[in-house]
């Protein structure tokens, strides 16, 4: 029995890691599903609020989907709520002058103590990882070759979707 008890923290960590991955997937699944054509434009004049990247996406229902804040060059985008094996999760990101400045989980499972325990670890971890990559001010990511499915969970995918 003692052995079992001693092993339980490890199990919690494993569960937390799984939840972190889910969180990252959800963040990345907010990528706007625009048509596949290529667009280009000159830089927007400074001082004007950019159009939230998510607003062009299809399928979102109105006001909840994305909100552009009033601050210059700042975008706040709320992703669609996505069902996960742990329950619905919805994430909001803030991008200021092309840099990710905040990641917040708006909706996440918190029905039972274990959910809360996992969230206590996973939500800050998601935030830390997203911000660490962003604060490194990188343009592109090199890593072991990903598949098309793996791309969806990659940091490169996050960079592509943020236009950072």
């Amino acid at each position: 029995m003692h052995t079992l008890r001693r092993r339980s923290p490890l199990r919690r960590i494993v569960l937390a890691s799984a939840a972190t991955v889910t969180g990252t997937v959800l963040l990345l699944s907010m990528k706007p599903h625009t048509t596949p054509h290529i667009v280009t434009a000159a830089p927007a004049p400074s001082g004007s609020a950019s159009v939230p990247a998510g607003s062009a996406g299809s399928g979102g229902s109105g006001a909840d989907r994305s909100r552009g804040s009033a601050a210059a060059g700042t975008k706040t985008v709320t992703g669609d709520s996505a069902p996960t094996r742990y329950g619905p999760v919805q994430v909001r990101i803030t991008v200021r002058n092309g840099k990710l400045t905040d990641v917040t989980a708006v909706t996440y499972p918190q029905e039972n103590p274990r959910d809360q325990e996992i969230n206590g670890y996973a939500v800050p971890q998601l935030r830390r990882e997203a911000l660490a990559a962003q604060s490194a001010d990188i343009d592109v990511v090199s890593g072991a070759t990903y598949t098309s499915q793996g791309y969806q969970q990659s940091l490169q995918s996050a960079l592509d979707s943020m236009g950072g």
Binding site: P36, I38, V39, T40, P43, D139, T145, S148
Partner: peptide, 28 residues
């Protein structure tokens, strides 16, 4: 993905991600 970006003070940017060769190729 085809996307416009606005790098502060920099030149215009053209970004694109293409699924090909069993992976995704990202252009910037």
């Amino acid at each position: 993905v085809g996307q416009v970006t606005d790098p502060a003070g920099g030149p215009s940017a053209l970004r694109h991600a293409e699924e090909v060769m069993g992976t995704v190729v990202s252009f910037d």
